[in-house]
Structure formats: C-alpha cells, structure tokens
Simulated scan of single mutants.
Amino acid sequence: MEPAKKKFGQNFITDKNLIKKIINILDQEPDHLIIEIGPGRGALTLELCNRFKKVVAIEIDSDMEMILKSNIPNNNLDLIINDVLKINFENLIKDKYNRISIISNTPYYITSEIIFKTLKISQKINKAVFMVQKEVAERICAKANEKNYNNLSVACQFYSNLKYEFTVKKNLFTPIPKVDSAIISMSFIQDNIGKVNDDIKFVSFVRKLFNNKRKTILNNLTNITNNKQKSLKVLDEIKIDSNKRPENISLNEFINLFNEVQNEKN
C-alpha cells in the first residue's frame, strides 16, 4: 500500500463510521455533483460515488492514481491528477446538476488557500464540508471579540452559514497526526453579497485590516487610506470606536466600514 507523504500533508481516514458521518453532512440529493479535494486512497470517494450522481476527485499525488482507479470501479468518478490550486473550478461546474458541493480532508498546508478558492465560487455551489486541524476550525468559526477571530473567519461568515460539526480524534487517521481535526460545514448564502458593490474587494479589504491585529482599527485603516483624519471621519460616521482592534469588529461593522470607505472615494 502506498505510504502517506508528509510533503502533501497526507493523513488517511480509516474509520468507516466516521466516513459515513462526514458524508451525511452533505445534502443527500442523489442528483448532485460532488467535488472532492485530496481523495488520497479513496476512503470517502467510494462512499461518495455510491451515493451521488457525479464525483470529481482532485488529487495532487500521481502515485494515488492507480490505487484510486482500482479501489473505485464506479463509472461516475472523474479523477483529476493535478494541484487543486491550479484547477479552474468554474470549468468543473456543470449546469445540469441540481446541487453542487465540495468536500475535502484538507491538506493542512494549503487549508486557507483551498477555502478562499471555494469562497470565490460560492454563488455557484450549495455547500462545502471541510476536515481541517481543530485549531483552524476554531479560528474559522470564531466570532468578534474571540481571540481566534481573523480575516478568514470574517470571509467565511460573509459567504456562508458556518457550523463546527464535530471534533475528529487524531487516532482515527493513518499515520496518526500530532493534533486533532474537526469537521466544519459551510452552507452558502447570497444575503451579504448584495450589501457591498464588490465582494472580492471586500474580502481583500478585511484581510488588510487584519495585517496587524495588535494595532487599532484606526491604524490599520490609515494604512489603507493613507489619511488618518479621513479614517477617523469614516469610523466616526459609522460609530466604530477608533481604539478597537480588528478582532473586536463584527461582520456587519466590516461591511459598513467597507461601504463608507468606498463612498468616501466617490
């Protein structure tokens, strides 16, 4: 059996009950396109193929190709051997499917990149289920005024209804990783996208405001506007205390702040 490769952050799931529990989080409509990132040896993939009409699995490790093809005889699997960060998701999405979901036992070293890539197509998919390191899951699901709250938390909450589903103990993987993992689900919503004139710019704006979490929102905003007085005026206009730090600002306040800065430009 092909061993796990550290460079790809591979840790394989072996527990069949866990596999079913993870897949049960997805909407169970059979007429469904599932995009799986990092299938590994195919533990999740086989169950996905048994339940859903079409599965596209993206695997970076070419050594897994023959294993996947021999383990999964189903003709509803499309296997792509490539780096997921090089894949154009839009090309994978087919209009003929009623629902589209993404699922991944996410390689820890590219977790944020995969999630941000998913958010960019959030208007075209219904749900994402990610297995990530427990600490990362807590960060993603953190709310304002919690220590783990960051720009990824804000972005995920902007695009989706987030849920920390459950913790996965490290001894359920082969090889056993150093830390526990967790399953999070994201049910995508359109509500917030209409509140800003450019959602991609909004996410970039929030990321810049978190560049230095120790600094006040005023200092971080001034780094964007290059004008402290203008930044003070903007914060005063929408009633945000200039001494607050980015981790104290709620999603709605970030939206208001972005819109006010945009208005000031016009």
Rank of each mutant, 00 (worst) to 15 (best):
residue 118 T to S: 15
residue 196 V to M: 01
residue 76 N to F: 12
residue 142 A to S: 11
residue 131 M to V: 13
residue 211 N to H: 13
residue 140 I to P: 03
residue 14 T to V: 14
residue 68 L to S: 05
residue 198 D to Q: 06
residue 225 T to P: 03
residue 68 L to Q: 07
residue 4 A to H: 09
residue 35 I to A: 01
residue 6 K to I: 03
residue 220 N to E: 03
residue 32 H to S: 08
residue 255 I to V: 13
residue 58 I to T: 02
residue 195 K to R: 15
residue 178 K to P: 10
residue 242 S to K: 15
residue 163 K to V: 01
residue 235 L to V: 05
residue 243 N to P: 02
residue 167 T to F: 07
residue 33 L to Y: 00
residue 246 P to N: 03
residue 221 L to C: 02
residue 198 D to N: 15
residue 68 L to E: 11
residue 224 I to R: 07
residue 235 L to P: 09
residue 124 K to A: 07
residue 23 I to Y: 04
residue 204 S to I: 10
residue 136 V to C: 05
residue 199 D to K: 15
residue 116 F to A: 07
residue 190 Q to W: 08
residue 74 N to C: 09
residue 166 F to G: 00
residue 172 L to Q: 09
residue 112 S to C: 03
residue 66 M to D: 14
residue 89 F to N: 10
residue 128 A to F: 00
residue 250 S to L: 03
residue 241 D to P: 02
residue 100 I to F: 07
residue 265 K to R: 15
residue 168 V to C: 10
residue 228 K to T: 06
residue 133 Q to S: 05
residue 224 I to L: 13
residue 175 P to I: 07
residue 193 I to F: 12
residue 113 E to M: 11
residue 88 N to S: 12
residue 71 N to S: 11
residue 34 I to F: 06
residue 32 H to G: 02
residue 61 D to A: 01
residue 142 A to R: 01
residue 203 V to S: 09
residue 153 S to Q: 04
residue 259 N to Y: 12
residue 35 I to M: 00
residue 105 N to G: 13
residue 248 N to L: 04
residue 104 S to Y: 04
residue 257 L to W: 13
residue 100 I to H: 02
residue 177 P to H: 14
residue 104 S to K: 12
residue 234 V to M: 15
residue 99 R to N: 12
residue 93 I to A: 09
residue 88 N to C: 07
residue 230 K to S: 11
residue 49 C to Q: 06
residue 133 Q to W: 08
residue 72 I to N: 13
residue 112 S to A: 11
residue 51 R to I: 04
residue 145 N to M: 05
residue 217 I to A: 01
residue 131 M to I: 15
residue 19 I to Q: 14
residue 232 L to N: 08
residue 46 L to E: 12
residue 254 F to E: 03
residue 213 K to M: 06
residue 137 A to L: 08
residue 211 N to C: 09
residue 14 T to K: 15
residue 246 P to K: 09
residue 182 A to T: 01
residue 206 V to M: 08
residue 182 A to P: 04
residue 104 S to R: 11
residue 259 N to R: 12
residue 162 L to I: 15
residue 62 S to W: 09
residue 110 I to G: 00
residue 219 N to F: 02
residue 111 T to C: 09
residue 239 K to A: 10
residue 77 L to D: 07
residue 251 L to D: 01
residue 70 S to Q: 14
residue 34 I to Q: 01
residue 218 L to W: 00
residue 122 S to A: 11
residue 266 N to T: 11
residue 75 N to F: 06
residue 202 F to T: 04
residue 53 K to L: 06
residue 161 N to Q: 13
residue 70 S to L: 12
